[in-house]
Computed example of a mutant assay.
Amino acid sequence: MMKLLLTFCLLIGVLLNTSAQVSENIKITNDNYLRTNSIVYFRLKPKGGTGNIYLLDKNKQKYPVQFLKDGFACTIMSLRPGEVKNFKVIKLREAGAKAEISLTAAEAKFTLNGKQVIGLQTGKKDLPAGVDSVFRRGGYIFPILSPSGLSVADDYPLNHKHHHGIWAAWTKTEFEGRHPDFWNMGNKTGTVLFEGIKNTAAGAVFASSESKNAYYDKSITPNKKVLDEDWQIKVYNLKGTNKPYYLFDLELRQRLSTSSPLRLPEYIYGGIGFRGNGEWNGKDNAYFLTSEGKDRTNGHATTSNWVHISGKVTGKLTGITILSHPDNFRSPQPMRIHPTEPFFCYAPPQAGGFEITPGKEYVARYRFIVYDGEPDRKFIKSMWDDYAHPLISK
């Protein structure tokens, strides 16, 4: 009878057990950077499936894991400079919260815990009243929402109908003797079209999409494709932040569609752009702060590693920080800061002309932080350091 009771208790213990250790142990050693909610990369091969995998530290704190390509996985954690942490790899029976992505004809919607963070527009939504169809385009990020649900961006503003949340385009160009303008679409010489979403992923650490855009020269009949552009967007599933914020990455890659180079002469703007909320119109309604301590009055045509743009929406202060990766072309990149409108652009052509040539990609990477309230320079600097020098444990 005692043996039977012991067997029953052991069986109940197995059934109640919510985790099982996977064979690997992981050691993560930080360098000299303070890392807050850092995306940490390490080698880990999936065994018995990729779902519900966590790192477990000595204090029984669990860190969700998401698998990547090439034998790597990632998690999100905070680390002090020089800190070393050891983990067991465990598999839980119950799944935790995930970053999600859902697709409609008009939008790829990224959500965390049921709340939308951003959307990727496909060009299928109805145009606002007063906007001609020549301005229609997709392949840009809108809406962009703060943790309290405030919108930090605008789309098709009537004074600049070609501005769209976060978007990319080139303005002054030379291509086969013509001058297509992919930015000012009202000129009808160039346009950017959304071609589709290739891959999506949803997981405990991030949700992502890979999509394609195409740049067309409209100054010739038939219209000629000039560039193929790939976008990768990742929205991260942050937890336990003292001040709530959203974090997402954009990587864009451009390559020629023909053997003809695309020349980009020196110009004031062109590259990656941001258009702020309509309530931020007017020189006193949007606030700019750069990594070099400059603002709207003296920041235009200077360079920066990051810029924070903010303003009030329904009386509440909110904003977005744009981090420019140090590997970007001409980093730290020059900026276009508009004197009266909530418009910003990282604009490599400001520093002189260059070319996109056959067989060589143009690559640009940016990280975005969205939160309510005043910008914190110390926090932003720490986030840029972490982005610029990612922790990759090999």
Score class of each variant (00 low, 15 high):
K3S: 15
L4P: 00
L4N: 13
I12F: 10
L16Y: 08
L16M: 05
A20G: 10
E24S: 14
I26P: 01
T29H: 07
K45M: 13
K45T: 15
K47T: 14
T50C: 12
L55Y: 03
L56M: 13
I76W: 07
V84H: 03
V84T: 14
L92H: 02
A99N: 05
L103G: 01
A108Q: 02
Q116L: 09
S133M: 04
R136G: 02
F142T: 13
S146R: 07
S146W: 10
G149I: 13
S151M: 11
V152S: 04
N159G: 03
I166G: 00
A169Q: 03
P180S: 04
P180C: 07
D181H: 09
F182L: 05
F194M: 01
I197R: 00
N199P: 00
T200C: 09
A201T: 09
A202V: 13
G203H: 10
V205E: 03
S211I: 00
Y215K: 07
I220H: 11
D230T: 12
T241C: 13
K243G: 08
P244I: 07
D249T: 07
F274Y: 15
W280T: 02
F288M: 08
N298P: 03
A301K: 11
A301Y: 06
A301T: 11
W306T: 07
W306L: 02
V307C: 12
H308Y: 08
H308L: 03
I309Q: 06
T314N: 15
K316N: 08
T318F: 06
T321Q: 04
D327C: 01
Q333M: 11
P334M: 12
H338M: 01
H338N: 14
E341Y: 02
P342V: 05
F344V: 01
C345A: 10
A347D: 12
P348G: 04
P349C: 09
G352T: 09
G352I: 11
E355M: 12
E361I: 09
V363K: 07
Y366S: 05
Y366M: 03
I369S: 07
Y371R: 11
D372H: 05
D376L: 02
F379A: 11
